[in-house]
């Protein structure tokens, strides 16, 4: 088994205050680690986008059933495997939304570095025109900054709800 050191893990309801606390904690932890400023910045930036993706995703029309079923909870695990940082997130997702998200992730994963840059720039200029059309910018940014493919998996909880796992390995 590969050696894996967990740096930070969290499971629970995601709120804006919690996002700020997790970021604060991670930044403080990394300051005590022997990492280059460049690595620290990249891990931190990617974590920002990962957490905000979860937060905004969860914020997307929650139903009362979601609250009751604790479907607004998420898991975040940040660890170091050998010399690489690994950020893993997991959150519930409504089954009908899975297809769209999967397509977006596959589109991003099919791009090389230049393709991702172009895609990011196009999405950013479109996003400024219509704030609604913003989906995906965070994921593109994560893919660009990590230098790796977005490794994901969807698990089925029941006929309405699935669980989305995202694993980001940072070069």
């Amino acid at each position: 088994m590969e050696e894996e050191n967990v740096i930070l893990s969290f499971k629970g309801i995601i709120t804006p205050d919690l996002l700020t606390s997790v970021l604060h904690l991670m930044e403080a932890k990394m300051e005590t680690m022997d990492e280059t400023p460049r690595t620290r910045k990249r891990v931190f930036s990617i974590l920002v986008e990962c957490l905000q993706n979860i937060y905004h995703h969860l914020d997307d029309n929650p139903t009362e059933a979601d609250f009751e079923a604790h479907n607004r909870s998420a898991v975040v695990l940040i660890s170091k495997v050998k010399n690489q940082f690994l950020i893993r997130t997991g959150n519930c997702i409504n089954i009908p939304k899975i297809m769209e998200l999967k397509e977006r992730l596959d589109t991003i994963n099919a791009m090389d570095k230049d393709g991702l840059r172009e895609m990011y720039q196009t999405s950013l200029s479109e996003a400024a025109m219509s704030p609604k059309a913003t989906a995906g910018l965070g994921m593109i940014d994560i893919a660009r900054k990590s230098g790796n493919k977005l490794d994901y998996e969807f698990l089925e909880i029941d006929s309405n709800m699935g669980f989305f796992c995202l694993n980001i390995l940072i070069d």
Partner: peptide, 9 residues
């Protein structure tokens, strides 16, 4: 120092 995608928009 840091700029997230939401701010970039």
């Amino acid at each position: 120092d840091y700029l997230n995608t939401s701010s970039s928009k």
